[in-house]
Design a protein around this nucleic acid. Sequence first.
DNA 1: CTGTTGACTTAGG
DNA 2: ACCTAAGCCAACA
Length: 116
Amino acid sequence: MKDPQQQKQKQPQDQQLLLRQQLYQTIAAIPMGKVASYGQLAALAGQVGAARWVGWCLRHLPKDSSLPWHRVITASGKLAFPPATAGYVRQRQKLEQEGVRLHNHKVDMQQYQWRP
DNA sequence: CTGTTGACTTAGG
DNA sequence: ACCTAAGCCAACA
C-alpha cells in the first residue's frame, strides 16, 4: 500500500534537522586555535554556497550552547560582528584565549584557517 | 506564494 | 584597501 501523504510529510523536517546537526558537528570539529569561514563550513556540511544559512543557524544558537561558534569568521579573516559590539568583543576574547591573535581587526587566514 | 532579511561570498570599480 | 552590486540559501512575515 502506498501512502504518499504520509511518506512525504515526514521527510523535509527530518532532512533540515539533519543538515543542522551535521553543521553543528562540523563546527564542533574545528580544533582549538584554528578558525573556519562560513562558506567553508557550509560546504563541509553539504550545503555549498549556503554561507548565509550558517550565519542564520549561529544567530539562532542557544545561549548556553557549547559549540565553538567563536571559531567561525568571514572568508576575508574578519569577524562577522562589527567592531565595538558586544559580540565582537566576546568572540575576539575567546579567540585570543585560544592563541588566535587579531591584527588590525583581521585574522591571518593562511596561518589559522582550519584545513581538515 | 512573493518579498525581506541576515553572525556571507565573490567580482569589479 | 575600501565600497558596491549581484549571487547565494534557508527562515519568516
